[in-house]
Design a protein around this nucleic acid. Sequence first.
DNA 1: ATTAGTGCAAACACTTTGCACGGGT
DNA 2: ACCCGTGCAAAGTGTTTGCACTAAT
Lengths: 134, 134
Amino acid sequence: MIEKLKDAGLRVTPQRLAIINFLDGNTSHPSVEEIYKELKPEFPSLSMATVYNTLQTLENAGIIQEINIEPGKRHFDPNPYPHCHFFCRSCKRVFDIDLGVEQVEGKRWVSDFWVENCYINLMGKCNSCMKSND
Amino acid sequence: MIEKLKDAGLRVTPQRLAIINFLDGNTSHPSVEEIYKELKPEFPSLSMATVYNTLQTLENAGIIQEINIEPGKRHFDPNPYPHCHFFCRSCKRVFDIDLGVEQVEGKRWVSDFWVENCYINLMGKCNSCMKSND
DNA sequence: ATTAGTGCAAACACTTTGCACGGGT
DNA sequence: ACCCGTGCAAAGTGTTTGCACTAAT
């Protein structure tokens, strides 16, 4: 991921490294605030603005993907390739979910629209919330 | 739609009628503010709170569907059945788009998740924004 | 040396809440 | 008469912005 940063002509700063390290291999699909809270102890000077900036930058560079699944809250996924997500309305967590759907990658025309991204979002309750009746 | 209101045990108020009338047959997928602005002249006393309340109520009753496609802004569709949407990043409009995908309706288990809704969202640029280079 | 990136605080956009009043049933 | 729905204002949540300072190249 650090290589990808350099390749994109972006500067390697401690803050960016920390965010990348936290996201890399992370399957929890954290929100902006979760990322901030996680890194704040280690980086007391870290500001929300930097987290927002960095995530936006990484997304623009195609290194991560934004997940717009929880109304009014942005989540991020270190895996930039299209895949399906599930949002639990009860515990508010985001999961990867395999629907066996083959998602087309890359930009293309679909009828009258120039499609750049495709998102498949499922909503409901995760198993543990179902069990505990939340 | 008015019948559906009554069937759901909801009161038929002028505000709700106005919102339903505006949405019914409307394919523009308006945001909350667009609905408010449209109806305000006709209903000077109308408040945003009522618009939010009503839309939430109609969604809960399964009469309309919410579309979470523009980050940080809610849109609504009078068609409550699952179908695909396209969001133009340039003009910020939401369109119906036919992918020829058969979407399953109703709640069901998908692997470990209790799935209640499914959304397929495409993002990019609409034809007219492509042409005008916006 | 240059200029991209950071951090702070204030501003912003959208949504929710509490409560008194009014209208639908 | 009951009580659901409305409207107002205030508060809440998440995000963006402007600008001076700092640090990566």
